[in-house]
Amino acid sequence: MFRNQYDTDITTYSPQGRLHQVEYAMEAVKQGSASVGVRSKTHVVLATLKRFASELSGDQKKLFAIDDHVVIAISGLTADARVLSRYMRTETQHHKFMYEEPMPVGRLVLQVADKCQISTQRASKRPFGVGLLVAGVDENGPHLYQTCPSGNYFEYLAMAIGARSQSAKTYLERTYTTLADADVEALVQAAVTALRETVASSKDTELSAKNTAIAIVGSDGAPVRILENAAVQPYIDALDSTPSAADDDDDDEDEADAPAATPAVAPDAPAAAPEGGSPAGGDAPAEEPPANGAADMQT
């Protein structure tokens, strides 16, 4: 009668113990434009690709400063992200008020993840259709976290989410070990280069100062910096001298394609399907839909 009767209600498990509605929410993240995060021993950098709803419109916001020491990049539904960012701003302010100290990043992310979980367990709600990369510093140094609509969160050394993020992840997996001791400039360049991977195969999109936004936060005590437009240009210019991995050589290309061909072992399958069959199992679409197919509300 129905193709799948278990996939319309957030409170219904499939016979395999999966929650399809949660998995679909995870798909919304993949529809959003890409966000990349990288971390060294002293800094975290986020690089994001901004979409424009039309030639006449401004860009959809990708980066939200939460506090002096925390910034997030979003992929998925911007409106949902605004709800989460407002929550995060309230929580960091509350912590500062209560303890006169900045909020530890891990505790903030934990609260966000718990908030996300709530809306996966009630029939009256839907999961948040957005994934976050949270960059921040605290007493233990710099941190990069990813949160998912499923209520899962992970701490990463380097990570990418959003449309065609697999290409960026493949690039990062090859390079992330060299980033621990990188200086800020190198870190930003690495993030931008990884971001470029997500548009490398696209004919109509190219990384530019206009559609790239960067956030930097470091354990030097300086508040979050967000770079846009002219400030991004130097990193875009520097890109042309570093050949894209896709053009680089054939071996790399094979490597980049490999995970997409066998989604079950793709390193990101977990991010999408953290086991227990929760988010997107093996039958999730391996290929991400084309960027221009996304609705305006997704960034």
Binding site: F154, Y156, P267, A269
Partner: peptide
């Protein structure tokens, strides 16, 4: 704990 990526910080999840 099944580790989903080698880029994860040990001990997370």
């Amino acid at each position: 704990k099944v580790v989903v990526s080698k880029m994860l910080v040990p001990g997370t999840m």
